[in-house]
Simulated scan of single mutants.
Amino acid sequence: MFGTAFLKDLIAHRRLIIQLSLKDLKDKYLGSYLGILWAIIQPAITILIFWFIFQVGFKSLPIENYPFILWLVAGMIPWFFFADALMNATNSIVGNIFLVKNVVFRVSLLPIVKIISPLIIHLFFVIVMVVMFWSYGFPPNIYFLQIFYYLFAMSVFILAISWITSALVIFLKDVGQILAMFLQFGYWITPILWSLNMIPSKYEMLIKLNPMYYIIEGYRYSLIFRSWFWQYPRMTLYFWGVTICLLLLGAFVFKRLRPHFADVL
């Protein structure tokens, strides 16, 4: 029932969701001289710093015959979207109290608003990635289109987690800090700056239990390895199994706590 009603409201409020997402993107950088350009500058500088450290400092060799910078951006850019969207979605209800008290608007849609705004920036960086690969002699091919599948999968995964975190953070403010800590920890245990081949094989399964491993490697399957997601049925079933379980748990938690939001806020 929750899922059907949610989809109906999603379609009914689609224009409002887009408007709120664009407004959120503008408000985030309101008052700064460079405005929305900061959303591009900050990730770009981070990538350049890590590229300089590993490529120039540690003399990192090409991976799978691809320059290290291409391997790096294929992992860092999807992670930037994941971390930014998840943190924003977690605070989506706390930051929109006026909509929480609006009985017409479905509050469970608010995390989507906070996912769409960083998604716009992410799509820009996807274009940048394609241009970078092309400039290095790897022109776009049909596998590049698979990025949109992994982007959709990651967005659903973010929504599933954010239904839980956005509801809990209203009652337990520490959730935001705990989530930030987990994101920092997850950044280093996910093969973003390193390859899975660099660790002992006995630890590989533990790394693969991280759903974001499926997403990060999926971007590389699309851009570098040129393979389809259905060629890895176990990982695909595992990812969607975890995601669906989190969606069901998130829907349950959100539905149970929703009647108390207005009172606490």
Rank of each mutant, 00 (worst) to 15 (best):
R258M: 08
L16N: 12
V103A: 15
M198Q: 13
Y238P: 12
I63A: 11
R106A: 12
L209K: 05
I41R: 01
G3H: 11
K59I: 02
M154N: 13
S166G: 01
L99I: 06
D263F: 12
W188M: 07
L30E: 10
R106H: 12
T4D: 14
Y221P: 00
L246S: 14
W194T: 00
F6C: 10
R220I: 07
A44T: 15
H122E: 14
L246I: 09
M198C: 06
I18D: 10
W79K: 01
F254C: 04
A44I: 09
L246H: 11
Q231T: 05
L48W: 09
V253P: 01
L61S: 10
L145I: 12
I199L: 10
W228L: 15
V169Q: 03
K202N: 13
G218S: 07
I127A: 14
S21K: 08
A180H: 09
I18Q: 10
T46V: 12
F80T: 10
P140H: 08
W188S: 03
I93F: 00
G186N: 09
L119F: 15
L249N: 05
E204Q: 12
L223N: 04
V175H: 00
L247D: 10
W71M: 02
S117G: 11
W230K: 07
Y136I: 08
Y213L: 07
V94Q: 05
K173H: 11
L86G: 06
Y149W: 13
V175W: 00
N141I: 06
A39R: 04
I158P: 02
L72R: 01
A85Y: 05
G3W: 14
I142R: 10
P118R: 05
R234T: 09
W188C: 03
E217D: 13
V128L: 14
I69D: 02
G3R: 07
R258I: 07
I36Y: 14
V107N: 06
Y221M: 09
L119N: 07
G218A: 06
R258W: 08
L86M: 13
P111S: 10
F225S: 09
L34S: 03
L179W: 06
A167S: 12
M154S: 14
I189E: 07
F229N: 12
Y203K: 02
M198E: 14
F82G: 03
W228K: 14
P78G: 02
L206K: 07
I161S: 00
N65T: 02
H122V: 09
L109V: 04
F252Q: 06
S201Q: 13
I112R: 05
I36M: 13
D27L: 05
L25C: 09
I120F: 15
L206I: 08
L30F: 14
S60G: 04
Q42Y: 08
L70G: 01
F239K: 04
I53A: 10
E64P: 07
N96T: 06
K8Q: 15
L247E: 12
L193M: 09
A12N: 12
L249S: 08
S195F: 13
I170N: 00
I216A: 07
Y203Q: 04
L99R: 06
L86W: 06
I97G: 00
R256D: 11
K28P: 08
T90I: 00
W38R: 00
V128T: 06
M205V: 09
L109K: 04
A153Q: 04
F252T: 11
F80Q: 11
N65Y: 01
R220W: 04
S108C: 11
A44M: 12
M235N: 15
A167P: 00
L123Q: 14
I170M: 07
K26R: 15
Y143A: 07
L151M: 08
